[in-house]
């Protein structure tokens, strides 16, 4: 598998670490109370079967966190952006 790091160019899987779903958003209420939004953020995930936005870390390269859109059926990579560029 290869991922096109927007900074370094296409690189092999061995340079990256997988983190998980990129579409979950950390609640912005400050976390004073452990409510459902927080439990969902940490534990609940869609079992997607198709394009999946996910986070990868370029650990052996430029240390960028990347949002990779990857089809979980075909393994096609549909897009890669730097996480810091996603608002």
């Amino acid at each position: 598998m290869r991922i096109a790091c927007p900074y370094c160019g296409p690189r092999g899987l061995e340079e990256f670490l997988y983190h998980g779903d990129a579409s979950v958003r950390r609640p912005e209420d400050g976390g004073a109370v452990p409510d459902q939004a927080w439990t969902d953020y940490v534990y609940l995930r869609e079992n997607a079967n198709g394009p999946h936005r996910e986070l990868w870390y370029h650990h052996a390269g430029c240390h960028a966190w990347l949002v990779v859109t990857r089809d979980l059926r075909s393994h096609d990579i549909l897009g890669v952006t730097a996480a810091r560029d996603e608002a």
Binding site: C8, R11, E14, E15, H59, A60, G61, C62
Partner: peptide, 10 residues
């Protein structure tokens, strides 16, 4: 310039 691996070493 490339930030990459040589064997198992960054």
């Amino acid at each position: 310039v490339a930030l990459t691996l040589a064997g198992q070493l960054p």
